[in-house]
């Protein structure tokens, strides 16, 4: 944490849907290489925050700067081009295609920008890269299976793998372990975090499981009714009275 300037600066973010306030007074700085956990009860505004940073939702007001570039007003595509990727709470993959095809499309879009999109897609270079990602995310054995028939866990892995092939500088993961059994969660996160650390990606991930949070993150953002009520180390956060009452207390 020696760098002085944060890579992501969020200022006074506000988002309302009619009378519902989904985000309010959000101020966050994230530095390069940090792994940040986002916690909060259902409906606290975690996904909404991810959606705003990645351009799916336009904030009612406020600013989001990525390396000095203003992101508000950009859509998902431009945010991806800028270098921010995400995964989804409900995995968003191409469900009638195989795992290999899913990754290939993701790679081709990331690598064949502009007129290169008019060249044949299956180049030897991309095929090698694809196999490399398959291996790193432990997806080899599912390579030729259609997504339709795969378990939630494998879909989640694929979802994340597709997000990282563009080599983002920031990655937001929305509940990467939801839908994965308790026994598998740690193994799953080990695979993901290890792969991401290798690439020095800055990670923000939404998570309900406090054990996971404690193990992988250096810092926690606790959301409650659209506001950040705590921004501290995971140890402190777990001991924090407000966090206990509004985040952990509401969950079993």
């Amino acid at each position: 944490m020696t760098e002085s300037k944060p890579i992501l600066e969020v200022r006074d973010l506000l988002k309302t849907f009619g009378a519902v306030v989904a985000a309010k007074d959000i101020n966050v700085d994230v530095r390069k290489g940090e792994i940040v956990g986002i916690i909060g009860a259902n409906g606290a505004g975690k996904t909404c925050f991810v959606n705003m940073v990645t351009g799916y939702l336009k904030p009612t007001s406020g600013s989001i700067a990525f390396d000095g570039v203003q992101l508000v007003g950009k859509g998902p595509r431009e945010v991806t081009h800028a270098g921010i990727s995400r995964s989804f709470q409900v995995s968003q993959v191409f469900h009638t295609m195989t795992v290999a095809e899913n990754l290939m499309i993701a790679l081709a879009i990331a690598k064949n920008r502009g007129f290169a999109a008019l060249r044949e897609m299956d180049s030897p270079d991309l095929l090698t890269r694809r196999d490399d990602v398959l291996t790193r995310y432990h997806l080899d054995s599912y390579k030729d299976m259609t997504v339709n028939v795969l378990s939630q866990g494998v879909r989640k892995l694929l979802d994340i793998a597709m997000a990282v092939v563009s080599e983002p500088r920031i990655l937001l993961l929305d509940e990467p372990t939801s839908g994965i059994s308790v026994e598998e969660k740690f193994g799953f996160m080990d695979v993901v975090i290890e792969a991401l650390r290798e690439d020095e990606v800055t990670v923000l991930f939404v998570e309900h499981d406090m054990e996971i949070v404690e193990r992988y993150v250096s810092r926690v953002l606790a959301f409650y009714q659209g506001e950040i009520i705590a921004d501290m180390s995971p140890k402190k956060a777990l001991a924090d009275a407000k966090v206990q009452e509004f985040v952990i207390g509401t969950r079993h």
Binding site: T54, P76, R77, H95, M97, I105, M121, S166
Partner: peptide, 18 residues
């Protein structure tokens, strides 16, 4: 190639950058 992917999931295609 962006045929089936668009049919399956447009949101993902946009997030991939196309």
């Amino acid at each position: 190639r962006l045929t089936t992917p668009i049919r399956d999931n447009e949101i993902r295609v946009e997030y991939l950058g196309f």
